[in-house]
C-alpha cells in the first residue's frame, strides 16, 4: 500500500466526516426555525436511537439468542431507572454468562 495514498484517503475521510457534523451546528445557531422543524429536531434523538438499536443489536454478540437476552436485561434494568453503568455492565454480564454456559 502506498503511504501517500493512505494519507490522502484518511484526510478525505476526515473532511467528509467533519463537514456533516459541523455545518448544522455552526449554521443553525441564530436562525429562527418554524415550530414543525423545531419539533422535528427535538424528536430526532428518540428516532435515531431507536434506529441505532433495532435491528442492529441482534448481530452485536456471538449469537442472536445471547443478543436478545442482553437486550431484555438492558430493557429491564433501564425500566427500573438504574444507573446507566449498571444497565451496561448488567447487559454485558448476562451475555457473558449465557455464552460461557453454552460453550
Amino acid at each position: 500500500m502506498q503511504n501517500m495514498n493512505l494519507w490522502l484517503i484518511i484526510i478525505g475521510m476526515a473532511i467528509v466526516t467533519y463537514i456533516p457534523r459541523m455545518l448544522p451546528m455552526v449554521l443553525l445557531q441564530e436562525i429562527k426555525l418554524p415550530p414543525l422543524i423545531k419539533r422535528f429536531l427535538e424528536l430526532i434523538p428518540f428516532a435515531a436511537l431507536s434506529a441505532l438499536i433495532f435491528p442492529g443489536i441482534l448481530s452485536s454478540t456471538g449469537s442472536t439468542t445471547s443478543a436478545v437476552i442482553g437486550g431484555i436485561i438492558a430493557v429491564l434494568l433501564a425500566f427500573f431507572r438504574l444507573n446507566l453503568i449498571v444497565v451496561v455492565v448488567g447487559s454485558i454480564l448476562s451475555v457473558f454468562c449465557w455464552e460461557t454456559l453454552l460453550v
Binding site: I57, S66, A78, V87, V88
Partner: peptide, 25 residues
C-alpha cells in the same frame, strides 16, 4: 478473548437502551 469480545459487543446497544427506556416510560 472471543467470549469477552462477544459480550462487550452489546455494551453500546445497552447504553442506548438505558437512555431510551426511561423516556418511553
Amino acid at each position: 478473548p472471543k467470549v469477552v469480545q462477544n459480550s462487550m459487543g452489546i455494551a453500546l446497544y445497552a447504553m442506548f437502551i438505558g437512555l431510551l427506556i426511561p423516556n418511553t416510560r
